[in-house]
Simulated scan of single mutants.
Amino acid sequence: MKPRISMVALGVKDLDQSIKFYRDGLQLPMMDSPPEVAFFNLNGTWLGLSKREDMAKDAGVNAEGNGYSGFNLAHNVSSQKEVLDVLDQAIKAGAILVKKPQKADWGGFHGYFKDLDGHLWEIAHNPFVWFGPKD
């Protein structure tokens, strides 16, 4: 069986602004991308950005939506300090802090922000399991 690539795709209102947020603000490594999309390497998966209207049209659904969609992204880091650093980076790049960094009920440390389009991100440190690449 050929390997498969998983990708998280986000529909955004302003592609150029979102590219700046993820590339310059969060310093995610941007891959070569056609002009109508942007791809970022996330150590084992990809983040893809496209215009919200284009993605909605492709899926055959309405582009408008609000509230919690039952979906958020989680980014696991190696320390509590890194949780603070990533959240600070996101806020400086224009994100909105949703939940201040704090001890989590499950024993870790985390906080939440919304990106420029309201996509919810959890930044977390789990001291019990490392989710990142193996050295």
Rank of each mutant, 00 (worst) to 15 (best):
D117I: 03
W121N: 04
D85E: 09
S79C: 13
D115Y: 00
V98C: 08
A95I: 03
A95D: 00
G70W: 10
S78Q: 06
K103F: 09
N66I: 07
L120H: 10
G118I: 09
S69E: 15
Q80T: 14
K114E: 15
G67V: 10
L120I: 14
Q102A: 10
I96R: 11
F113Y: 06
V98S: 09
H110K: 08
N76S: 11
A95C: 00
E122R: 00
H119K: 10
A93H: 01
G111Q: 10
E122N: 02
G118Y: 11
P101M: 11
Q80W: 12
F113P: 03
G94H: 04
K92Q: 12
F109L: 11
V77F: 04
Q80S: 15
Q89L: 13
V98R: 12
E82V: 06
A74Y: 00
L120N: 13
H75F: 12
K92E: 08
W106Y: 07
Q89C: 07
V77K: 07
H110G: 09
F71Q: 13
L84S: 08
P101D: 05
E82L: 07
D117N: 07
S69C: 12
F71E: 08
K92M: 10
S78V: 06
P101N: 09
I96M: 10
V98L: 12
D105M: 02
H119F: 13
G70S: 05
N72F: 15
D105Q: 00
K81E: 15
A95G: 01
G94T: 02
V83W: 10
A95P: 01
A95N: 01
Q102R: 10
L97V: 03
A93D: 01
K99Q: 14
K100L: 00
W121V: 01
L73E: 08
V83E: 12
H75T: 08
A90Q: 05
G111C: 12
D85N: 06
E82A: 10
A95V: 00
V86T: 09
G67Y: 06
S79T: 14
A93P: 02
F109E: 08
V83P: 09
L87E: 03
D88F: 05
F71K: 09
W106F: 08
G107A: 02
F109N: 09
K100P: 01
S78I: 04
A74T: 07
G67H: 12
Y68D: 15
Q89W: 08
Y112A: 02
N72A: 14
G111E: 10
A95F: 01
G94M: 04
G67Q: 14
S78K: 11
L73N: 12
F113C: 02
L116Q: 01
Q102C: 07
V83F: 12
I96E: 12
Q102K: 09
K114Y: 11
H75G: 04
Q89I: 03
D117L: 01
E122L: 00
D85K: 08
G94V: 02
K92C: 10
I91H: 14
S69P: 14
F71A: 14
K114F: 14
V83Y: 08
